[in-house]
Design a binder for these strands. Structure first.
Lengths: 143, 143
DNA sequence: GATAGGGCCTGTAGCCGCTACAGGGTCAAG
DNA sequence: CTTGACCCTGTAGCGGCTACAGGCCCTATC
């Protein structure tokens, strides 16, 4: 009955490097269409599913969100439309990655200077703890 | 009854740049001790809470997880212990940030090359979509 | 035919660190 | 006495999975 080129979920998982639960998750959230079912109610995937899941995996590896991927998949099907929107999603994501890098680099500098402050003595005189604790606020005093 | 230097949750929120809900959340997960309550069951915070929440905020701004902050707070109280463990947490976090930067930079290069592939024509010939789609796997063919 | 073991099914809860309600009570000013 | 800002509790949601529990199915072996 079932053609040879159909895949059970485990086989699809191995073929794409995705966990079985993740595949079911993608189905639940509508990224992967519901597959056909075997006599025993097993999911049965064909080449289209494999291609689509591979696309999703690649995009996830590149850090696109599921929402972005949903949009990309939709756009990829409009093959004679201009690809501006595709480009825009990719550029937006690239910019976000670049912003994150800049943020993390600022963090890295702060953390490096924090770590540098440790004088390897008691906690009481540890520059790290000092740097995290609020300053005694010299000058203004209550009461 | 309530001393002047006690703060309601909103005042503490303003003083530390934290949202009210976040303060309650920190209390729930045990990062902030339960404060005293006013006659009308309002939370009432003193200087110790202010200092502790400021510490938490700073550490959060530096990207420490709540678990790490919990550990840091615990260690910060053992003032005559060696500060090795404090240093270790900070170093671990710094290393993780550095790993994330490296990962994102690799991503950035991939995304830049992806974006570069767009030829601004139809989706059908878009290099971005091509790069995300599985290759036709020339050579091996089923059946 | 019985059984062992893998794989598959559904449904639900958990992770992190909040955030956002709903549906009330409290309090100070006018 | 009313307004309106503040506060309370409790619960659900975000993204993107992951990890169960408690079952069914399918194949291989005896």
């Amino acid at each position: 009955m079932a053609p040879e080129n159909m895949l059970a979920i485990g086989a699809l998982a191995r073929a794409t490097g995705t966990k079985v639960e993740t595949i079911r998750w993608y189905e639940r959230v509508g990224l992967l269409p519901h597959p056909a079912r075997s006599a025993g109610n097993y999911r049965s995937y064909g080449a289209a599913h494999l291609a689509r899941l591979s696309f999703i995996r690649r995009a996830r590896d590149l850090g696109f969100s599921l929402e972005q991927i949903r949009a990309l998949l939709g756009l990829a099907e409009q093959r004679d439309q201009p690809c501006e929107a595709v480009d825009a999603i990719a550029r937006t994501h690239l910019e976000e990655v670049e912003r994150k890098i800049a943020d993390l680099q600022a963090l890295q500098r702060e953390l490096a200077s924090l770590v540098h402050r440790c004088r390897h003595g008691k906690v009481a005189e540890c520059g790290i703890v000092e740097a995290l604790s609020p300053r005694p606020d010299m000058g203004a005093a209550a009461g």
